[in-house]
Design a protein around this nucleic acid. Structure first.
Length: 114
DNA sequence: TTTATGGCTGTCA
DNA sequence: ATGACAGCCATAA
């Protein structure tokens, strides 16, 4: 049995990674992909989140693309919702609607809780 | 097994 | 700084 420490599909790992993102913090797709074990699979991450059923406790809203910008899933209003959720968590947006990843960029080794 | 799509990323103009 | 093009990985049909 090939019991891998990271079994299941990438989607499962992505869920775990995103679920570990603390409130008031954001991570980029590429970053999540790396944490999930598949660097470069940023698109796959986005797809995994898009495949995420709403109603769970998965803070997909804390996942933004590389420049800290918000993406949309086809619903232009959705990104506004995501932005509102992040602002509600304490994340501030730039005048262009960008997040300061230098300040809110989450890293598994630099949790603000400590 | 192959084809097509997708909440992306990085580089060039 | 903004806009456009091509590349990459994974999932679903």
């Amino acid at each position: 049995m090939t019991r891998s420490p990271l079994e299941g599909t990438l989607r499962e790992r992505i869920f775990a990674v995103v679920a570990r993102i603390p409130a008031g913090r954001v991570a980029s797709y590429g970053h999540v992909a790396v944490l999930a074990g598949s660097p470069g699979a940023a698109r796959a991450v986005g797809w995994a989140l898009a495949s995420t059923p709403d109603g769970n406790n998965l803070p997909w809203q804390r996942v933004v693309n590389a420049g800290g910008r918000i993406s949309s899933r086809g619903e232009p209003a959705w990104e506004a919702v995501q932005r509102a959720l992040l602002e509600a968590e304490g994340v501030t947006f730039d005048a262009s609607g960008r997040i300061d990843l230098d300040r809110y960029g989450w890293e598994p080794d630099l949790e603000p809780d400590a």
